[in-house]
Design a binder for these strands. Structure first.
Lengths: 317, 317
DNA sequence: CACTTTATGCTCAAGTTGAGCACAAGCTGG
DNA sequence: CCAGCTTGTGCTCAACTTGAGCATAAAGTG
């Protein structure tokens, strides 16, 4: 009799405001965070997506809107017992399908054991809005260099991977490479999850540098989501899934910046938005912004019909 | 006792020359083509990718190099009995994980029941190198319009989807939308697979317009691969996985064109390649090209180290 | 040697990008 | 009530990039 297969569905539900991007997370026994997730039911679920929506609703009360599939992880040893998959037969091989969802609003989830969590708590090295975090060069880079040095023949190749991923030694920082960075840290034993999965010795660095771990492979899925969303922002107008009906241009910019973990040049951001035709001014203004009142805008859904799939330009500065 | 789950692994292995892009295909009983595929073995396969490589090797003798995951399909009713998954328990729920592989060479596979197939035989509407195929407007569009008209309240939305996907009524043709186009044809009952899956009446159009079907959901996976590869070409230097060590710039351009299904402006293609620093001239020339001898180039792998992830620009022409 | 074929260099106009100056229009504290 | 802060918005400029096309180079062929 062959090993049964169980499919876990996990969701990264993202919301963002001017301050930070948030992922919907569940709280677990040991205080660890996890993503809303559950087991795919081959009888009850006609599609993965429907199953996923069921689970998210059940665990957080949140009703997902825009949703897309991220990746399917199937490698042995990263799926973990902590992941509570209910009636999964023990000894089953666990496969994990990750989804990304976007929402304009951090809905009230106080009735559930769930929270909206600033995703940079799990990835402190990913937030470059106030400049490159010093922890990269001070804490992570030394550890990664030691690890790559100890890689024998592969040392040079591993060092190159590290340099490219983390923007060391003159390489540029490329924000979409979130997953590559997390995987490197994991391989180097600098993620607490690696210890847990394999009984390696725990990393010598504090959580403030390594980010808070999550149950099972959920931090890996979150990293995948961040990288995918960062990339997609640039060529599809998905930011608007994260905005309410009307917003000021600065609000929009802050959301983009919080997702990308970068700060952008204001005037150029506006110019490219203007050209794209993705937004229209409403003629109204809001003075909720502190200084001069800002005009309110809304997303022009019609623009989608116009072959416009450009997304938001992201000049740095 | 719950329904067991079986995971199918399928591979789209792509090669290309100046004339066409090819996918490695297997031949089946009824003459239908399929992709190399097999069942994921939860005991024997440590990762999906390793399992996939095993299956491809076993069925075609081909040894995959570059490989990436495409998508995981799990919806009921599209996975099909024709897919020979060996010892899969009957009544199992079938999940399908697709992979994309690239290779510079159409290796000899004559010892196996496999062929390298011009992928446009399965997607005749996707090849715009010699201009927009007339079959789109003459054969497909009318059928799609009839279908969307019959969609009641959703008619307008469906029509918009069709227009966007197929570039009707002034919309531009967007080559990456291969999957969307195939899915629309399927939904509209214009793919022979739809008939097979649901017992609907067969489409009234000939295979020369609708493309040759494939077993199970393999044409859907192939469409996913084409779309993904077309997109990726533009922002990652993946074309070079399809080239041998040295090549002329026209050869490179022809490969890009065959993948995209578009023709490009020669001088501009060269200029952007030049600027990218992705290739270096070898100083040698080849006179195998017919006219003036062309210089041979090779891919500068070092360019990858240089933050260069640009891929090949694709100005039209 | 005219003619075809492929390879390459170069130019030009139009558009895009990155950076920054300047000013507008609210609020707050003295 | 105005100096000074905050946020919003218009505009300019130089450096590049893109799309298009002209012109010439270097092979082979009848």
């Amino acid at each position: 009799m062959s090993t049964p297969i169980a499919v876990g569905l996990s969701a990264v539900i993202v919301a963002a405001d001017g301050k930070a991007p948030y992922a919907l997370a569940t709280r677990h026994a040991d205080g660890a965070a996890g993503l809303p997730h559950g087991r795919f039911d081959p009888k009850g679920h006609r599609t993965f997506e429907l199953g996923l929506r069921d689970w998210v609703r059940a665990q957080t009360g949140f009703e997902p809107g825009y949703v897309e599939q991220l990746y399917t992880f199937g490698d042995l040893g990263r799926e973990l017992p902590q992941a509570d998959l209910g009636d999964a037969p023990s000894g089953a091989r666990l496969i994990s399908v990750g989804y990304l969802g976007l929402t304009p609003e951090r809905t009230d989830i106080s009735a559930f054991d769930a929270v909206w969590r600033d995703w940079y708590r799990h990835f402190p090295w990913e937030d470059h809005r106030a400049g490159r975090p010093t922890l990269i060069d001070q804490a992570l880079a030394p550890g990664l260099r030691i690890w790559s040095d100890n890689n024998g023949k592969q040392a040079a190749a591993q060092l190159a991977r590290v340099q490219l991923a983390f923007g060391l030694d003159g390489q540029p920082w490329i924000e979409e490479r979130t997953l590559e960075r997390y995987e490197l840290l994991y391989e180097a034993g600098l993620a607490p999850e690696a210890t847990r999965d394999s009984g390696r010795k725990p990393p010598a660095l504090p959580v403030s540098a390594l980010g808070e771990p999550m149950i099972s492979d959920h931090r890996r899925i979150l990293a995948t989501a961040i990288g995918r969303l960062r990339g997609k922002l640039k060529y599809r107008p998905v930011v608007f899934e994260l905005m309410r009906d009307s917003f000021t241009l600065l609000e929009l910019q802050k959301v983009v910046e919080s997702i990308l973990g970068l700060s952008l040049h204001k005037q150029n951001f506006r110019r490219s938005l203007d050209r794209s035709g993705l937004v229209v001014g409403l003629g109204q203004t809001t003075q909720a912004t502190g200084g001069r009142p800002a005009e309110l805008f809304r997303f022009r859904r019609e623009a989608l019909r116009n072959g416009h799939l450009s997304g938001v330009q992201t000049p740095r500065g």
